[in-house]
Design a protein around this nucleic acid. Structure first.
Length: 495
DNA sequence: AGCCTTTGACCAGCG
DNA sequence: TCGCTGGTCAAAGGC
């Protein structure tokens, strides 16, 4: 949900207009990765292999499986010290940055070149952040930077979102019923059950030693609404409260859709940085949406989303991304509020910039939801509340589950920030359609963004100089999206 | 009292 | 059959 640390006005929203999703072949999805490139050139190649959706392998193993070599685990919490990107917020990693409106309009698109290199016809490696000049050492063998105060960082971000007592707080109540150290994972896996009567939803959560969630796997779907306490009264620009009530999980902020200080400045479709497969909707309240309600009993889902978008090929659910900018005078903070069109329970929120003002008193108005603790302050350059989107796929789809998205995403584990965690949904829902949304690959059109990110020596800012780049897509087709993006970029904080 | 976490034991699937 | 592994159970204890 669009959490509000301050007030954002909706900049706009994209609704993916391209339902002609296609499932990519394995060959199309295979990529190779070169750590040397990452290390030396700063761009990513990736290797993608099919993998079961219900993998229980540890991240490192999965990485190894995909890249073909053993990957020393990074202390990701320290990858990006303040001297790099000042990603003091747990919600930020280079990956998330690359998923920001600046870097990511399409996972298959180079944010720097705008080249779409992962189209079906493209068998080659593709570049992602080649020219990004942020201090982004990706040597996976190195603990980059000093130990930063993880707890502090976390405290302003996911820590609030994911308190230890509510792992992956998604608005539902969970009871832990087991914990085990699974093979291949250096972190214990905790097992939770939804406490709601007759609800069979379970989830498995892996945490790092620091308590950061590294992976969440959901099994089945809720057959009930979220507990009222998690429901937030929302009124706002987009009309219905329900539509706005996207679960405050993703924020450590007071929740407010219609804050007087943020305005919506853009909107548009987000062509799939997330791999999605259709099936059951985990809509607001967890109730299946129409398309799948006919089989609610078997409603389950699978979804792999994370900083790594670790896993799938398909993306059938259109996603909506709203862009907001802080309306405070002189404040250039922007954010964008991404979710599946039908799934209001999950959201990916990305912040760009740093507020240069105090939190408006209006935050405490009646608009403000019950949200959590404090606001995102301090040296926060960007913050991403990487909640996930629930998209279902049938169990059978696991056979074809491919880490298809991008090299970048596949490398997410390296970049995994304290808030970065993988989310999988596993289930047996019938697959009504398997397709790839967001990216009309067949038409080979996309919206790319050329971006340049520069780390602030003070580690407080991230400059994102971006130029939307459009290929094989008419201006008309882009409509507001392009202009909105340009506007967004123009408002980004300057170093 | 109720709900939760913890944790060792147990069970089932698989090779 | 056996061992491994992931998942679950359930008693104990804490809040």
């Amino acid at each position: 949900m669009p959490g509000f640390d301050n007030n954002f006005a909706v900049m706009g929203e994209w609704l993916d207009p391209s339902p002609n999703h296609k499932k990519r072949s394995k060959a199309e999805l295979e990529r190779e990765v070169s750590l040397e490139d990452i290390k030396n050139k700063g761009f990513l190649h990736a290797s993608f292999q099919e993998k079961p959706c219900y993998s229980s392998n540890g991240l490192s193993e999965r990485i190894a499986a995909r890249t073909g070599f053993k990957v020393p685990r990074l202390k990701t919490e320290s990858i990006f010290p303040s001297t790099c990107l000042a990603i003091s917020s747990p919600g930020v990693s280079p990956a998330t940055l690359l998923e920001s409106p600046v870097f990511l309009s399409n996972p298959l698109t180079s944010p720097t070149t705008g080249k779409l290199s992962s189209l079906p016809s493209d068998k080659a490696k593709y570049e992602f952040i080649e020219d990004i000049s942020l201090t982004l050492s990706l040597d996976p063998t190195t603990n980059i930077g000093s130990e930063h105060d993880d707890s502090q960082a976390y405290g302003s971000g996911l820590g609030d979102l994911m308190p230890s007592g509510a792992p992956g707080d998604d608005g539902y109540n969970w009871r832990k019923y087991g914990q085990k150290l699974v093979k291949g994972s250096e972190y214990p896996r905790s097992y939770y059950k939804c406490t709601h009567p007759n609800c069979e939803v379970k989830k498995k959560v892996e945490r790092s030693r620091e308590g950061h969630i590294t992976e969440i796997i959901y099994v089945k779907a809720h057959n009930h609404l979220k507990p009222p306490t998690n429901r937030r009264s929302v009124t706002g620009l987009s009309g219905t409260g329900d539509d706005m009530q996207i679960d405050g999980t993703g924020t450590n902020e007071n929740l407010q859709w219609t804050s007087p200080v943020y305005e919506e400045v853009g909107y548009g479709s987000h062509s799939g940085s997330m791999q999605v497969q259709s099936g059951t909707q985990f809509g607001y309240g967890g109730v299946a949406t129409d398309a799948f309600s006919k089989d609610e009993e078997d409603r389950t889902s699978f979804m792999s989303v994370s900083l790594g978008y670790d896993g799938q090929v398909d993306e059938s659910e259109p996603k909506r991304r709203s862009y907001y900018k802080c309306t405070a005078s002189g404040c250039n903070v922007t954010k964008h509020v991404e979710r599946a069109s039908d799934d209001l329970t999950s959201v990916l929120t990305t912040y760009i910039g740093k507020h240069n003002h105090a939190v408006p008193a209006a935050r405490n108005s009646s608009h403000v939801g019950s949200g959590s603790s404090g606001t995102v302050q301090g040296g926060l350059a960007t913050q991403t509340h990487n909640q996930h989107v629930h998209y279902p796929v049938p169990r059978s789809s696991s056979e074809g589950m491919v880490t298809a998205n991008s090299s970048l995403h596949d490398f997410q584990p390296y970049l995994r920030s304290p808030s970065g965690f993988s989310v999988y949904y596993v289930g047996e829902a019938e697959l009504t359609d398997i397709s790839v949304s967001g990216l009309p690959i067949g038409q080979e059109r996309f919206l790319g963004l050329e971006a340049l990110a520069t780390g602030d020596p003070d580690g407080l800012m991230l400059q994102l100089a971006a130029e939307p780049k459009v290929e094989q897509m008419s201006q008309q087709e882009l409509g507001l999206s392009r202009s909105s993006l340009i506007d967004i970029m123009s408002r980004l904080p300057q170093i």
